[in-house]
Design a protein around this nucleic acid. Structure first.
Length: 111
RNA sequence: UUAUUUAUUCCUUUACAGUCCCUAAUACCUGAGGAAAGUCGGAGCUCCGCAGGGCAGGGUGCUGGAUAACGUCCAGUGGGGGCGACCCCAAGGAAAGUGCCACAGAAAUAAACCGCCGGGAGCGAAAGUUCUCUGGUAAGGAUGGAACGGUGAGGUAAGAGCUCACCAGCAGGCAGGUGACUGUCUGGCUAGGUAAACCCCACCUGGAGCAAGACCGAAUAGAGGAGCAGUGAGGUCGCCCGCCUCGCUCCCGGGUUAGGUCGCUGGAGGUGCUAGGCAACUAGCAUCCUAGAUAGAUGAUUAUCAAAUACAGAACUCCGCUUAUAGAUUUACUUGCUAC
């Protein structure tokens, strides 16, 4: 699990990011990004019921969390991000998700 | 365990030392299911006015037992199915009342369409035959899921439980059984189906649910004005009674996204043995037991295990039911085939 300070856990913050954040769409994930004026990044992960049952949703969440953890040092700090899993994430292996994530970070000039 | 900061204790003071909390790093330990699922039934627990009475509403529906309880389970009874092992059934009441019974058919709780028989009238010598005539008749035909018990005999103008025998069904007695019910005798002679239609009968039923609810913290402002009412308004399902609380509405002014802790897991618990019981289950003894989160949990890579994996992830707890499923395991029996 990520540290408590690196998590987004208020429904309102998610709503704020959807409204005001920059939206970048990848092949398997969608990311909303907004500056947060902190020395670190904060993340939220969303897996909707469209993706599948609880087992599939939890697995997708774990894999996204691992991608974020693995590349924590690479990404520039000071942003809030919401990562949304798309419905086709359940069919792909870990490396492809990681590649997708890094591509989005590059596009946002955070890497 | 280490480190940093802060607070506190001790002390005249300082230092050393100790304790608690927060944060970070490291190490070690622990972490889902038979269905965790669907949320269909029941219960514990919590709060609401301790929930009292009546009506309404809802539920259950063969009998006896088990259980904290149930719409669950066990053992029976009665139906139905299967060659069989065995399986299935919301299975009370239709002589309390009402409704409905499509199409077909003359008629669907009401009967005469065809037919059969007697009488009358006409025709005819008679046999007989005809009818806008009259009466009897439910045996036969035709329709239908169902036509006012069935089969046979007597009986009759023709017929008819009109009479008799057997069968089905009904009522009552007796015997057996805790009981559902079974057996038998007697009687009168027949009573359509539908209650997952209304309904009747018996029993059960207050409501909301862990986002229940409790505590701590933060913030905190109304002796303001106007109108209305006092047979008023509100109070955790509907209506009436009973009970409890309070004036109410509008305007003006003020406040409001800050959370944390508990509830939160050891319990109607699992396993084994003994005893009781046909069984469900119960009792005693022994022994075993580690999720408890709060954006909400089993990651990535490599290796290995003989090989491989379905349905699927706890959110207060438990007992059931239902549905989804790869594989593995156990016992008893039935049927078929093959061999002896």
């Amino acid at each position: 699990m990520l540290d408590k300070k690196r998590r987004i856990n208020r429904g309102k913050e998610y709503g704020y990011l959807y409204k005001n954040g920059r939206r970048i769409t990848g092949k398997y994930i969608i990311v909303f990004i907004k500056e947060n004026n902190l020395a670190h990044n904060r993340f939220g992960i969303v897996t909707s019921k469209k993706i599948g049952n609880a087992v599939i949703r939890n697995r997708a969440k774990r894999q996204i969390r691992e991608v974020i953890r693995k590349n924590l040092q690479l990404v520039r700090p000071g942003y809030n991000m919401v990562v949304i899993a798309r419905f086709n994430i359940k069919e792909v292996i870990f490396e492809l998700i990681e590649k997708d994530y890094l591509r989005i970070m590059k596009k946002a000039s955070l890497y």
